[in-house]
Amino acid sequence: DAYPTLTRLFADGGYAGQKLEAAVAHIDRLTIEIIRRSDITGFVILPRRWVVERTLAWLNRCRRLAKDWEASIASSEAWMV
């Protein structure tokens, strides 16, 4: 409801399945498009794949979402409080 103009959700192939569909089933206007890798070897441009990869890269830059950002376990635990 916070993003009424959002109509299409692009997701990586790892998110394909009933769990994602059930999570967004209450949003009638939303369609899910799963972007899958091709079985072709070599460099192949996949449609909309860059959107998924770019979004994941942006999320990984966020300090609170990054897995290996903190130098010690104590400092990582301090963020959880």
Rank of each mutant, 00 (worst) to 15 (best):
A2H: 06
A2M: 11
A2G: 07
P4Q: 07
T5V: 09
T5I: 09
L6K: 13
T7A: 02
T7G: 04
R8I: 09
D12A: 11
D12W: 05
G13L: 07
G13D: 02
G14A: 09
G14V: 10
Y15H: 04
A16S: 06
G17W: 04
Q18V: 06
Q18I: 06
Q18M: 04
K19E: 00
E21K: 02
A23P: 01
A23T: 13
V24T: 09
A25H: 03
A25V: 03
A25Q: 10
H26P: 01
H26E: 12
L30I: 01
L30P: 00
I32P: 00
E33A: 06
E33N: 03
I34H: 03
I34W: 05
I34S: 05
I35R: 05
I35P: 03
R36Y: 12
R36G: 00
S38R: 12
S38Q: 12
D39G: 04
D39F: 07
D39V: 02
I40N: 01
I40V: 14
G42P: 11
G42C: 08
F43S: 02
V44Q: 08
V44E: 02
I45K: 13
L46E: 12
L46D: 04
L46I: 11
P47T: 03
R48F: 03
R48G: 00
R49I: 03
R49D: 11
W50Q: 13
W50I: 13
W50M: 05
V51L: 11
V52A: 04
E53L: 10
E53M: 12
E53H: 08
R54N: 04
R54M: 06
T55W: 15
T55S: 13
L56D: 13
A57R: 15
W58L: 13
N60P: 04
R61I: 13
R61T: 13
R61S: 09
R63P: 10
R63D: 04
R64A: 04
R64V: 09
R64N: 09
R64T: 12
K67Q: 09
K67E: 08
D68A: 04
E70M: 11
A71G: 15
S72W: 10
S72K: 15
A74P: 07
S75A: 14
S76V: 08
E77H: 14
A78C: 12
W79S: 12
W79C: 06
V81R: 14
V81E: 14
